[in-house]
Amino acid sequence: MDNGFAISVRNLVKGFGGFTAVDNISFDVRRGEIFGFLGANGAGKTTAMRMLCGLSCPTSGSGTVAGYDIARQAEEIKRHIGYMSQKFSLYGDLTVSENLTLFSTVYGMSDKDIRLKSDMIFKTLEMEEMKNCLVKDIPVGWKQKLAFSAATMHAPDVVFLDEPTGGVDPVTRRKFWELIYQASSQGITIFVTTHYLDEAEYCNRISIMVDGRIKALDSPENLKKEYASGTMDEVFRIVAKDAKRGD
């Protein structure tokens, strides 16, 4: 099935007992798009993202990710996406090169491809001298670039980034966004969450989730016009201020 979208969901709902974490959301993400998925704490972002990654089955509604059905083809989805989060992405007690081998083996890459791809990553990231260092000993900026490379080395259609830049310094944060730009220009679709609202400006389009629903969805430029705001920070405050959940 090919509808031209990397992600396409309709009326997606996820309930836990009497609580509706994700309440009827619908949206499409184009191929190669950088899509920012924003929302207040507790808005339902993580639950929605888990459904999109094939980790959780929707209560109702339907959708495709990389052309595969989120309810029936979860295993296919997992093979065609990459995932990275700031909280956990790499094994600190493995070396740089062991981490890459582990991730690419999990994704079923051949030994030869793993060798070729790893060498290419070491070269482009200028990490050749570090490849035998334990990941826990390398600086945070390198760790991030490496985590992103590990999440994209199997050439996924879509990569999900869950707060990839939380707690990171302004210089490293910007370098990371340049990696995102590069991946996007190579046709990889980027689905990213962040609490840094300057980063929302770097997305092609963003959605803002409030209490399980998508309250706003458009390009940063159009959203700023719609809410008569100068920055995405102001837009977010206006859209999210009436959130009932989270606090």
Binding site: A40, N41, G167, H195, F236, R237, A240, K241, G246, D247
Partner: peptide, 12 residues
């Protein structure tokens, strides 16, 4: 770091 991982409205 009382506000790490906290959204913009709650931070404020």
């Amino acid at each position: 770091e009382p506000t790490t991982g906290v959204d913009a409205v709650s931070r404020s």
